Simulated scan of single mutants.
Amino acid sequence: MDGFVADDAYAIGLVTAEELPGVAEELAALLVDTVHAGASLGFLAPLDHGEALAWWRALGPDVADGRLLLWTVRAGADGRLAGTVQLRPAAPANGRHRGEVAKLMVHPADRGHRLAGRLLAALEERAHGLGLRLLVLDTETGSPAERMYAAAGWTRVGSVPDYATDPSGVLHPTTVFFKALGG
């Protein structure tokens, strides 16, 4: 994996297009577990593993073309997939200085190890290296993710009522954040 960063317990790496088919099954299992644990990621529960797998596999062309960057974090002891995050650089000519952060997930069994913050830090470093100066994202209002983004230095723009449903189908507002990158 390109961009590999390790510590004693977890390793973060950027997934290449060639590697994506080999990790798609694990990513699908992570998505299913995270949605079933209540995370609002654009899917409803119960999420079928086959549907999740097809969704990950469909990202291959975007990863290959650089329209999507995808990181994973793995538990060092057994190499088990513990989390992921995505960066989608903006395509329009007037927006090539920005990118959107999406699908930040940490497996419920691996929460409490600051993996979300580590994934964000790896993404922000790479985004800065690509010349991106502004990142945006949205997350369910009132969720633990909202508190994590604020603690990681992201600026809250506001919220949009009834933006999306949680996995059980209940409407929730979303909070929009941005982060300006140095340089």
Rank of each mutant, 00 (worst) to 15 (best):
V136P: 00
A145P: 03
P161C: 08
W154F: 08
T139G: 09
W154L: 11
P167T: 09
P144I: 08
E146G: 07
L130Y: 01
Y149A: 01
W154M: 07
Y163F: 15
Y163H: 15
A152E: 15
G142H: 09
D166C: 13
D162E: 15
L137C: 12
A150Q: 10
R133W: 00
A145T: 04
H128M: 09
S143P: 07
G142D: 10
V160E: 15
A152T: 03
W154D: 06
L130D: 12
L130W: 06
A151S: 11
L135S: 10
L132W: 00
Y149D: 00
V160T: 15
E140L: 04
A145H: 02
G131V: 06
G158W: 05
V157S: 07
L137N: 10
S143M: 02
V157N: 04
T139D: 02
H128I: 00
P144W: 08
S168K: 12
G131I: 01
P167D: 11
E146I: 05
Y163P: 12
Y163R: 14
D138G: 06
A152N: 12
D138N: 11
S168W: 15
D138C: 04
P144M: 08
L135T: 01
W154S: 08
V157A: 11
S143D: 08
R147S: 10
T139A: 13
R133D: 01
S168D: 15
G158P: 07
P161H: 13
V157R: 09
M148I: 12
W154H: 11
V136G: 03
G153C: 08
G153R: 09
S159N: 13
Y163E: 10
M148A: 14
Y149N: 03
A151K: 11
A150C: 04
L137A: 09
L135H: 09
V157F: 01
V136K: 01
G142P: 10
G153F: 06
R133I: 03
G142Q: 05
D166S: 13
T155G: 01
V136Y: 02
R147V: 04
